[in-house]
Simulated assay, not measured.
Amino acid sequence: MLHQFTYMLFRLKLIQPSENAIKYWIDTNAIAKLEYALKHGNYKTRQLAAEGLELVGQPSSIPVLLNAINDNIQKVSIAALNALETLGCSDDLVISITRKRFNWVKELRDKEEKEQNKKPKKHNIYRWERASKKSFDRVKEQLNKPIR
């Protein structure tokens, strides 16, 4: 009863379903609720819903998972790809999915390599360190003087 109420509030866009609610939907094979969560939830809800559809394993959710591949959040897209691979749709689809996954991995590695190859900026901060050290020493000396 509580999970139905949660789903109703989620449909009204008042709350996001909790991880326990999504696990309950997985246990009861509530595919429609999981698909709705995959379409309209926040990034964490979408990721959990895609993982749930992977566990439920119904071929009727393939179109929703195909739309979720192009999600802006990469974790959601990867969860949708994993779900599609688990469902084992067709050979051509699985090949395109693995290609897309390898392209993502390549893009991530290239991005990390670019960041590592960037030359670090050289900042001349010694002047500021000396000025701050002098002002600190001056304040310290003034505090050591007796108050008259």
Rank of each mutant, 00 (worst) to 15 (best):
L53N: 06
Y43D: 13
A21Q: 02
L38F: 06
Y43M: 12
K33F: 12
L65D: 09
L65M: 09
Q58H: 11
Y36A: 07
K13V: 02
A32W: 01
S61L: 03
S61A: 15
I15K: 10
H3S: 12
G41N: 06
Q58Y: 08
E54I: 01
A37G: 15
A50K: 07
N42I: 04
A50V: 07
K33T: 02
L48N: 13
K39S: 10
Y43T: 14
I26N: 02
E51N: 14
Y24P: 00
E54S: 15
A30G: 00
G57H: 03
G52K: 06
D27Q: 14
A30D: 13
I22V: 13
G52E: 05
E19V: 11
G52M: 07
I15W: 01
L55E: 14
K13H: 10
A49H: 09
G41E: 05
L12Y: 05
N29I: 00
G52R: 05
G57V: 04
K13N: 10
L55S: 11
G52L: 06
P59T: 09
R46S: 09
T6M: 05
K23W: 01
I22G: 04
P17D: 10
I26L: 01
Q16V: 04
K13F: 04
Y36P: 01
N42D: 15
R46G: 09
L14K: 15
L48Q: 15
P59H: 11
H3Y: 13
F10A: 04
I62C: 02
N20F: 06
L34G: 02
L9D: 12
Y24G: 04
L55D: 07
R46I: 08
A30V: 00
K23T: 12
N67M: 08
K13Q: 12
T6F: 01
H40Y: 14
L55I: 12
P63R: 10
E35W: 00
A21C: 07
L12P: 00
Y36M: 02
P59Y: 05
S60Q: 13
E51D: 12
F10T: 03
L34T: 02
A37R: 09
A37D: 09
L38N: 06
N20I: 04
H3D: 13
Y36C: 02
Q4M: 06
S18N: 08
Q47M: 14
E54C: 13
L9P: 00
A32S: 10
P63V: 10
R11M: 12
L34P: 02
A21P: 02
N20C: 00
L9R: 13
A50S: 11
H3C: 06
Y24C: 05
F5T: 12
K13S: 10
Q47L: 10
L38A: 11
F5E: 14
Y24N: 12
L48F: 14
Q47P: 00
G57E: 04
L48P: 02
Q4R: 11
V56F: 03
V56E: 03
